[in-house]
């Protein structure tokens, strides 16, 4: 049984009703096609209404859906071939990050992805998609090879965040992530980062320094998990819904804030409703950016990526003169009081 959210229940109820009517009509040989067709129209309308205006928290739920396609689901639909390469050569092979060489529209590319498991057993194996330092060091090793052999790098982001336990601290989680940021910012090959599910904080960003950052329509990408934010702000993890609104982390927000370059459409209700269709949209979006980046020289790829990062941030810059005028204003106001 597919995981169903509260806000989807009216749709499910109607769909069930349609199924019942169809069954009844078949059994009793009564023509109910008119009734069914009315209900079907109603369902289509309801879907567009509900899925077309999802709130941030509802998107979080969809992005974390237990049936949400993960990287391995996309592999056969995106690539003609994929050879997975393992290990960081230092400590271990982290199964919350997958990487390797793939063939994308006939071109060899290096692919790196965070991978959540499906079901408890696989999730334990993959540490719920939360990479340890060895995962980031594997990613770095493979990305460095892409730079060496001139292959474009495609990353796929889907993690609640980097592993946050003693082992991660002992092996230098901070340094491992920082090295990825540094290296990615300097590559001479195209880097395209696609957020396919959850983009959880620094653990996600470690694969996010792309020339282009693409986001699936119902994915989110945040500095902090909404639950943790709620816990800090209101000392109440149940206020995650409010935090989700405050953090402005949906694909639409990130496009507006200059972090995301493109939103990839999902089928109504989310990627899990139609994997094939979603993969096709992802494939087209990546292809579009790869073609676009092909016109840039290796130096341009690097410099444009730097300038893209350089431009992220919102602040005000006022001159010293304005500052002193302002303080005179304040002084005068104080004096007249």
């Amino acid at each position: 049984m597919l995981q169903l959210f509260d806000f989807e229940k009216p749709i499910a109820e109607l769909e069930q009703k349609i199924a019942e009517l169809q069954k009844f009509s078949a059994e009793k040989d009564i023509d109910l096609s008119q009734e069914v067709s009315i209900l079907e129209k109603k369902v289509t309308f309801l879907k567009k209404e509900i899925y077309g205006s999802l709130e941030p928290w509802q998107k979080v739920q969809i992005a974390r859906h237990s049936e949400r396609p993960n990287f391995y689901d996309y592999v056969p639909l995106l690539f003609e071939d994929f050879i997975e390469l393992k290990g960081d050569r230092l400590f271990a092979d982290d199964r919350s990050i997958a990487g390797g060489i793939a063939l994308f529209h006939g071109t060899p590319v290096t692919v790196i992805a965070q991978v959540k498991g499906k079901g408890t057993k696989e999730n334990i194996k993959r540490n719920f998609g939360m990479p340890h330092p060895e995962g980031y060091r594997k990613a770095l090793r493979l990305m460095d090879q892409a730079e060496k052999f001139g292959r474009p790098i495609l990353t796929f982001i889907d993690t609640p965040g980097a592993a946050c336990d003693l082992a991660a601290e002992e092996r230098g989680q901070g340094e491992a992530i920082a090295r990825c940021l540094l290296a990615m910012s300097g590559y001479h090959v195209p880097v395209i980062s696609t957020v396919i599910g959850e983009g959880g904080s620094g653990g996600a960003l470690a694969l996010g320094v792309g020339n282009a950052v693409l986001m699936l329509e119902n994915s989110f990408y945040s500095v902090i998990a909404p639950e943790s934010c709620a816990s800090i702000l209101w000392k109440d993890t149940t206020k995650a819904k409010e935090a989700a609104e405050a953090l402005k982390f949906t694909a639409q927000d990130l496009l507006r804030l200059g972090v995301a370059d493109e939103i990839i459409r999902e089928p109504l209700g989310g990627a899990h409703k139609n994997l094939r269709q979603t993969a096709e949209e992802v494939s087209q979006a990546i292809s579009k950016y790869l073609v676009r980046l092909r016109s840039e020289t290796s130096e341009m790829l690097r410099e444009n990526r730097y300038q893209k990062l350089r431009a992220i941030g919102v602040y005000q810059e006022i001159s010293e003169k304005e500052i002193s005028e302002k303080s005179i204003d304040i002084l005068e106001k104080d004096l007249t009081k």
């Binding site: 940021l181 960003l205 990408y221 972090v259």
Partner: peptide, 20 residues
């Protein structure tokens, strides 16, 4: 990273690392 500036804070990590 400062939570109150959301994703903009997160990307300051990448921006400072790139400058280094």
């Amino acid at each position: 990273a400062r939570m109150q500036e959301g994703i903009l804070s997160l990307y300051q990590m990448a921006k400072t690392s790139a400058a280094l």
